[in-house]
Simulated assay, not measured.
Amino acid sequence: MDFKPISDRLAVIRIKATLQNISIICAHAPTDDAEESSKEDFYDLLDRAYGACPEYDVKIVLGDFNAKIGKEDIFGGLVGKHSLHEETDNGFRLIDFAAARHTVISSTRFPRRKRSKELASGFRTRTQALRNSEGNLDTEEQGIVDVFKQHFQQLLNLQNVEQDNDEREARPVNEDPVPAPSREELERAIQKLKNNKSAGSDGIPAELFKHEGSVLMNRMHQVITKVLEEECIPTDWSIRSICPIYKKSDPMICKNYLDISLLNVAYKILNLSATQISARTSVALGQAEQR
């Protein structure tokens, strides 16, 4: 019925069928070693290609995603029980896409030949026990949560202190009040938000800010203006949800887990707006010095 090349990595073919037509998206994703911008561009095009398919078509996405998918229960019905891999960055991106589009990664839903017994037997589907800072084993659910909490508090607070000290030494003090963003700057900041990302603790995704319209935009502009005037960030904006994702080695040791932090989108908008304000202020100062 139709063939549409989108890029050198994406193409869509539409096939006529008896009950429903079929839209097939053929994809070849960048490797894990590729630049972040290449990966972001690829998944942005993939998302738009999927959204452009007719609503009632059967949609199939296939090809080489250069991704390794795990089989942990945290991924719910998106992933089957027959993967033999540990997750990679591309794997997480593919899972995010599947979750946003209410699809499943079907290649993990049927058994395949195992390459080695050691690899197959080395996987754990969930964290049933964790060692605390004293080396003792916690098996209760609340105990495991407390161990993770203590580990990530120490890890992230140490990183934040070192980063704050470096920034404080390198950054000159500016007593001038921070100007509020214009409406256009706020709109640009919101459009820079990435799609298909998990929401923070407030449960509000980026897509809501992008498509809700002028009412939400006006309200957000008022809130950010007030935050900058009063120099006080709402408490909820500073809360981030941390999801521990198992990487490798001993699953009972916290350092073998990757921390995935989920920030509220409103806080991301504030940061993006502040970046544009900083760029605008720098340009204005440069022009004033040239006069």
Rank of each mutant, 00 (worst) to 15 (best):
M1P: 07
D2Q: 15
F3D: 02
F3Y: 11
P5D: 04
L19H: 14
Q20I: 02
I24K: 07
I24M: 02
P30W: 03
A34P: 04
E36H: 15
K39G: 00
Y43L: 13
C53P: 01
D57V: 10
K68G: 05
I69W: 07
E72Q: 07
D73M: 07
I74D: 15
F75P: 04
F75H: 14
K81I: 08
H82K: 08
H82S: 10
H85T: 06
E87C: 14
T88N: 05
G91D: 09
G91M: 00
F92Q: 14
R93T: 03
R93H: 05
H102W: 06
F110S: 08
R112C: 04
K114C: 06
R115P: 01
A120M: 05
S121A: 15
S121G: 10
R126Q: 09
T127P: 01
Q128R: 15
A129S: 06
L130Q: 12
S133P: 07
E134C: 08
N136S: 12
G143I: 05
V147Q: 12
F148G: 11
Q153D: 05
Q154T: 05
L156Y: 00
L158Y: 07
D164R: 06
D164T: 14
E167N: 13
E167G: 00
R168N: 10
R171S: 12
R171N: 12
R171L: 13
P172M: 04
E175I: 12
P177M: 15
P177S: 01
P177A: 15
R183H: 11
E187L: 12
N195D: 15
N195W: 01
A199Y: 08
S201C: 12
G203W: 07
E212D: 03
V215K: 03
V215D: 06
T225C: 08
T225M: 00
K226F: 01
E229I: 09
E230Q: 12
I239F: 07
I242H: 00
K248F: 09
S249K: 13
K255N: 14
D259T: 12
A266K: 08
I269G: 01
L270S: 00
A274K: 09
A274L: 15
T275D: 09
I277G: 07
T281D: 10
A284G: 13
L285C: 09
G286N: 10
